[in-house]
Design a protein around this nucleic acid. Sequence first.
DNA 1: CTCATAAACTAGCGGTGTAAGTTTTCATTC
DNA 2: GAATGAAAACTTACACCGCTAGTTTATGAG
Lengths: 218, 218
Amino acid sequence: MPRPRRPLLTRDRIVETALALIDADGLGALSTRRLAAALGVQGPSLYNHFATKDEILDAVADTVTGAVDTSGFASRDWLAALRDWAWSYRRALTSHPNIVPYLAQGPGRRPAALAMADAVYGGLVRAGWPPARATHIGAALRYFVAGSALGSFARGFVEDPELYAAHYPHLRQAHRLAEHQQSVDEGAFALGLDALLHGLAAEYTRTVETVESARPTG
Amino acid sequence: MPRPRRPLLTRDRIVETALALIDADGLGALSTRRLAAALGVQGPSLYNHFATKDEILDAVADTVTGAVDTSGFASRDWLAALRDWAWSYRRALTSHPNIVPYLAQGPGRRPAALAMADAVYGGLVRAGWPPARATHIGAALRYFVAGSALGSFARGFVEDPELYAAHYPHLRQAHRLAEHQQSVDEGAFALGLDALLHGLAAEYTRTVETVESARPTG
DNA sequence: CTCATAAACTAGCGGTGTAAGTTTTCATTC
DNA sequence: GAATGAAAACTTACACCGCTAGTTTATGAG
């Protein structure tokens, strides 16, 4: 087949289909040939639109990141904004858990990821956090969210009662974790996030507010 | 070559070499043929000792997890034990960051990972946390540690000043993050862990201690 | 109308995990 | 001590992988 009258592929269609395949079958199951087949095309044709497979994955990752809402940093206090962002971030990642390991490499050059980092860091600095602290807070929350989305804690335990009964006295109920996956994973996230933010709020009053009150107000 | 007089391979030697290759060149660079070559052997010979490549990776992951120290749960109060564990866990993972994405799938059937989960959960329950809470706390800390080890936050940003200057006003210094990788990543971990534990301590006095004091002492 | 570019194709390279079957040695049993 | 079965190396081979190179033809710009 020569060049068709209307292009069979677009970047958007490729990204869309790749994400669907990743969601359905996992990151490891995405090959250029399988992706091309799903698009009704031969494998190497993809390389007319993307230079490498990683470039496709970058684009997929960025559409996932694009769903994260950082608008709170423009309208709410820093603590509420952090909470909203963390939940939105988590929702975006858990909607497409299979891409998370790839995404966890950092923002790189992906625009949506950079825009998110910019909004979070800017919001924290504007709230009075020293720059180094703002970096640490953004990183800490990313650690927590990414870790929580990377793999279900609950599904990490095999559903085999005998495995635990034999040698792990406290894990006798672990085989039932998978049944309650969502409530376990979300409960752990909620508890951890609340604890984290509680601790940050204490740190804020301890450092930022006292420092500011000791200075002439700007 | 037929069966040799003394075995050329042992499970330990395979795991050791696999970990060294992963540390050196990354998880993606570990192939059965390259691993076999490093062991002075042909690729398929590995299958006399492991059924699949994943089984090799399981063994590698478990030796990494085996370096985590959970002894604090037997000797110290729950808060100090959690802190010691989290740092030890992080050190174990950051010593072999390339295996972390694999390890993040959960304990599965790996003995060291299960023993760790058992110690943490048991320690928290013994301290008076309700079982569901203990699960959430263990999960939340795993999220945080795994997220922090999964990929460096600092190295996630490209060293290209022009990238940030153009469109991300608050990230003007982001290209310098990689220079300070260790202090950024460790600082973020320290801050986040302290905040998390601070929040948990508050929760403990709010729920566990008040509930116990309302009951007849056991 | 010309012509470079774009977008599909086919063929193929070197790599992957692993299944199958072969050979020889080791360890066990009669 | 001979027989036997398992163990541990090997070779060969299959289907798949990411990607390159070169081909063909339609498109859009000059």
